[in-house]
Design a protein around this nucleic acid. Sequence first.
RNA 1: GCCCAGGUGGCGGAAUUGGUAGACGCGCUAGACUCAGAAUCUAGUGGGGGCAACCUCGUGCUGGUUCGACUCCAGUCCUGGGCACCA
Length: 897
Amino acid sequence: MERAAPVDAAGEAGHFPAAMAYDPKAIEARWQRHWLENETFRCQVDPSKPKYYVLDMFPYPSGQGLHVGHPKGYICTDAIARFKRMRGFNVLHPMGWDAFGLPAEQHAVETGTHPRITTRRNIETYRRQLQALGLSYDWSREVDTTDPKYLRWTQWIFSKLHERGLAYEAEVAVNWCPALGTVLANEEVIDGKSERGDHPVVRVPMKQWMLRITDYAERLLTDLELVDWPERIKRMQEDWIGRSEGARVHFGLPEHAGETIEVFTTRPDTLFGATYMVLAPEHPLVASLTTDEERAAVDAYVAETGRKSERLRMAEGDDKTGVFTGAYAVNPVNSERIPVWIADYVLASYGTGAIMAVPGHDERDWAFARKFELPIVEVVSGGNVSQAAYPADGTAVNSGLLDGLPTAEAKQRINDWLEEQGKGEATINYKLRDWLFSRQRYWGEPFPVLHLEDGTVKLVPDDELPVTLPELDDWTPSGEFETPLSRVPTWLETRDRETGQKAWRDPNTMPNWAGSCWYYLRFCDPGNDEAAWAPEAERYWMPVDLYVGGAEHAVLHLLYSRFWHKVLYDCGLVSTKEPFQKLLNPGMILGFAYRYYDDNLSDDPKAEARSYPSSAVRIEGETAIATPTGEEVKARWVQLDEVRFGEDGTPLHPTIEDLPLEEVTEKMSKSRGNVVSPDDVIAEFGADALRLYELFMGPLEKGAPWSTEGIPGCFRFLQRAYRLVVDEDSAGEPAQELASGAGTEAQARLTARTIAGVTEDMERIQPNTAISKLMIWAREINREAEAPREGVASFLRMLSPFAPHLAEELWRRLGEESDLALQPWPEPDASLLVEDTITLAVQVNGKRRDEVQVPADADEEAVKAAALAAENVARHVGDQTPKKVIVVPGRLVNIVL
RNA sequence: GCCCAGGUGGCGGAAUUGGUAGACGCGCUAGACUCAGAAUCUAGUGGGGGCAACCUCGUGCUGGUUCGACUCCAGUCCUGGGCACCA
């Protein structure tokens, strides 16, 4: 075959540059260009091949760019993708951008730069950084959630949800931050203040879009059985969904005919012990039940709780507060009149927002009853309710028809009774709440709906999608409760094409989870303008075989996208029940940060601050106190590259004399000054060394602090690999002399063993041990004889998932002309894996004393004899007769005296 | 408080099902090459003892099961993560 003309630097030059020291910069640039220009990793549906879909959680491209911690997962999935490709799989390995979101919008407010500009710029940076790592993405499939061609289909999926009654508008309490002019998520509110800026947050009712994820609670829970995910992630989802079995019970209100209080309880068997009831202060019946005598106290209590955030209420812990409403309810099982209280230990958001209090068998009710001197009755034997609540199972007592029944049976019996009497029923309750789906922000997907003049809400027809954002040049929040879009009448006001009515667009936008809920589906068919994806593409590629991303998305992204996926499944639009078959969470790479303290609490740049090392500072609660003076001080961080190191390696402040710094391990962040950029590491050691090091550091799922010391080791290994093929000393020589064929028997065996081992490690996603086997191969292969060409070729194939640039370069130096990345993975010669003689350890009483060489096929008697004959064994056995001799084939012999 | 994950050399980490603890790499020590350094190569490197052969202790801690335990069981301490009045 004629020499193919690869479009790359080497091809143009006609020959490779003069041989010299390993120079990653030139090699990496050459092959990155080659892969991009030839679209080496472009893939398409091919039913003749098995598929493998390996996906990274796509990033939000922030203005900071990547640090070395981010690509850990990407590098691992890339190695897997490259491995699977060589193993004959048709691999889908795409990348895209989750680009809507608050940071770009905040940046816009501060600088006046349109979020689209910032986003585009950040994407450019991220793409450049990822490409510099040599990741084998099919870049033709790149998606951007802010692209109108993408968000059109996000809106289309919202329409599907709406059509099925799963999207609705409701008035709910939200965290409104007047200073920031926006609603905040619960996670963004800490102790009643905003996380950013420490501004007060109030809970106000606002009309919001909600998604009925609770309809899918049961399936979201049970289908976790179908996926291969880390147990702790499954557990977190289970806890979040929070299924509990119990009963709903209706308590009558004699003074309010027709009204009842409904409670949820997991212990209907304790109904006879319910001696009072408690409503959440927000409960709708509070106002009507409260008697005139109690009204002032109740109103004051309701107002007081309204001011507290849920978090603060919880923080108060065991000290129970509450007030009596003056009303009484009737216990349906024994017709006793019991008082109705309100208390903030009952949460409006869980169950029915009301409870029957059984102080004998619930710790919270017990504490409350004690404080307010309410009666405590024992209805389950086993404890001593005058000392403490007894929440465990036991035998029902003082409970009429339930007396003598064990807890499980009592529950069953009372449930049947409640249903017969029409006073309640067995039910299942979930902690999961419907998903608050709107945000009062600009940089998100507009809702594809019209609010018509007649008060109805109507979906924008599919053929009019997308509804794009209007151009704005001012994103500053101004009025109360006003969204940026509500200030754009030209965009907001429109007309319904069908009825001619005046119509208004929705001024809210979707949260940034929307785009990430389905991007894995778009990757199957990203260029499709007719549909969100073609059914053939979806059926071929789905599900995602391996999904890798941070555990911080355990409940949010992963639960939301599973929900959407199930809705799409019900619509017949996807063929799998679950989107992500196997999930792995990369551990976080941390960075060393260097800390001291000073007394410049106000951050005044002109102030003369007094500085203290950490050893002179003690932490009291949240505040740091300088021990010598007793005054408050503030932590300061020294940039990583400014730290000086003393003679003994002590980190020191760059300018202040004799100020030792404290070394702590922290998440990499700008404020801690401990960010390491991949750009810098690549500039010094190359992308291959960085990739190798991040994989070699340890298992994917384990986090560790970034240490610069380890990279040279990986660089040295690559250099050794380079020298196997390239003669560094004789400039101009294209390649080392290599022995032809597989080499000596020992070399052939080493190669076979390495192939078998590396293959197995990769199947188990353990690149760290695979790399160590390659290191051993490279060290041993030419110890006694010239490296054999066939062995080197196999080695390069195996090296290519980890260090793809160097492997590809050396492959060409061997005279090969096709892409190494598309070569088949080597197969070990099975006959070489079987050793003729094996070494067995010999133990005496379980302690290793010697070892013996025996033929691999030696029978047990021969092995025993050899073991007993071993010199050091004979010494320990002496003239004793072994009680027992245990032979573990291929492993060891244990002689028991 | 509850749930989950994890504790192995100076450091990152290996150790298929209970079967030679510490692979591989870093660091360190010595040597080779060099005028010298860098780079590279070679050897050594868990603690203690011994000239050595070897002996002994050793996988957070305390027990247990077993011929044999980093691995299994019970208890306990520490670290990290999640949840936190969920009726």
